[in-house]
Amino acid sequence: MNFVSLLSLRDKTFNFYFANLLLTPPMKLKKNIATSESGFVFNPTTGDSFSLNTIGAEILLQMKDNKTSDDIKKDILNRYDVDKSLLEKDWDDFMAQLRDNNLLDY
């Protein structure tokens, strides 16, 4: 089975800013992707399944709730001690992995 750990964002406590975030194009998760709070992701079209770490699972659940990338990033910056530039880098990596694994809707 194709279990892939998708995210490397590090959990930290918040002590950083969340202003001046750049607007990013919407990243839509495919409608039929099944996600669970435990971080298990299933693509019913391809049969692929993945497991995410806690923050990866949080991001996907928020994407599934149709929250924008900017809102999700703001939320992460609010709740975790993470440098904005590092978040942007990890975010781009994560989105690239979601895209490569056929989980995004464009």
Partner: peptide
């Protein structure tokens, strides 16, 4: 069905139903 586990004879030992 997608084969999840394939034997050396190419047979599915496990598989999952797909939506497509």
């Amino acid at each position: 069905m997608r084969k999840l586990y394939i034997t050396d004879k190419g047979k599915a030992w496990a598989g999952i139903t797909l939506e497509d």
